[in-house]
Design a protein around this nucleic acid. Structure first.
Lengths: 218, 218
DNA sequence: CCATTTTTTTAGATCAATCTAAATTATTAT
DNA sequence: ATAATAATTTAGATTGATCTAAAAAAATGG
């Protein structure tokens, strides 16, 4: 059984490796874990000893198949709990992350399968992220950054990339939610900002940075 | 903020002291915490340093007002989660304890208040135990052991004292649930066992030990 | 291409939570 | 009342997760 900390590191490695592809560097890992490089080195050694990652000094860490599915099961729990908090307890999408960070470590297969059923087997969480299945497999969705989407063409917001409370609160304020219809009216060359219409109504300017954190499909 | 372990010790002290009344002995504490007396001694020192208990060497530990309300808030969370598991996720009453032992340590006032509301502000948990309020106050119910209840007089099962899975499964098997009507038909002097009727229908013998773990009112 | 900078690892310390073994205090039974 | 027994505490070690400081390896830029 994995400790809290081991689960958190695994999750961080999963995200930093873009889903288990790229090697993850010690300092980046230390950064996301808000700890020191020395501590990250210790932990990658532990995880390597448990065969959850392969690790070469000075080169980086890669998830093994087991490590990846373990990480995805933690992510499954996180996303199911977020869904619960929003759908059942009336949390807003900017309030759920911290609590889900705790709930994701509860150890009980039964619990999570019953929770999944109670929620009606949701496919995505409140931020539009896909929920992995019980065996640790995930269906990635082919979505594109709004910043790369062509102008004058309808698209639907499917997910947010950055889930920070400040970004989510900003989106709520301007009326952007999952499922909303967008249309790029104009692209501003100067700074990459976009003039968009929301639900064919309101027109607004958003920064390049905001656009890069919105994932859309046709 | 208290650690997991500190919260668990506080809870154990609360229960062992019968709600904060009697002093709790180190060995008893070690027993319920499934640890060694030396570890219990360490912990009571820690809790005393935090003014959650008063503690005298060789004599025992007593909860302070703060310690008692902290303990009751953990118990509140435990009982609300148990209620959630049974009412919403279709757990049976013998399955919930272990998971609630984990869930009770989630740190979020908002979460627990929203959960309380979602459940409709329940007064008791699935085992009939009263749920303390958000400030750490509890309403004790005046209930009596079935073994002390007079014969040939209707009573209602209000709670179970011992919540072990094996006892709870046994009760389910014979049809005893919270709210069920009992009547003592005969008391067997030899071993203190009782012949009872359940819901004015089925007649059955139960042991003295079982009767001592059923709490009833008129 | 080598000197400087950056990144990563190693070594050694600390803290919470645990343990075992030994010492101390309290209880009990003759 | 005191010897034996039981309960409790102290002392010292261990483990996981962290840290700082120093050493080592890799990357970079004249």
């Amino acid at each position: 059984m994995l400790s809290f900390t081991e689960e958190n590191y695994l999750k961080a490695i999963y995200h930093l490796s873009s889903g288990g592809i790229d090697p993850v560097l010690t300092n980046d890992l230390a950064d996301t874990m808000k700890t020191k490089p020395a501590s990250a080195t210790d932990m990658v050694k532990r995880l390597a000893a448990k065969k959850l990652i392969s690790y070469q000094k000075y080169y980086g860490a890669n998830l093994t198949a087991k490590g990846k599915s373990d990480a995805l099961i933690v992510i499954r729990k996180h996303r199911l709990w977020e869904t619960f908090l929003v759908q059942k307890l009336d949390f807003t999408w900017d309030e759920v992350h911290e609590v889900a960070e705790q709930l994701e470590h509860i150890q009980s297969k039964t619990l999570i399968e019953k929770l999944d059923a109670f929620l009606g087997f949701p496919k995505t969480d409140p931020h539009g992220h896909p929920i992995p299945d019980a065996t640790g497999k995930i269906k990635e969705m082919k979505q594109v950054n709004l910043s790369e989407f062509p102008a004058k063409k309808k698209c639907v917001v499917r997910a947010v990339k950055n889930g920070s409370p400040s970004f989510l609160q900003y989106l709520s304020k301007i009326g952007i939610r999952i499922g909303v219809l967008l249309n790029i009216v104009d692209k501003i060359d100067f700074d990459g900002s976009l003039e968009i219409s929301i639900d064919n109504k309101k027109r607004i300017f958003i920064s390049r940075e905001a656009a890069e954190n919105l994932l859309v499909t046709e």
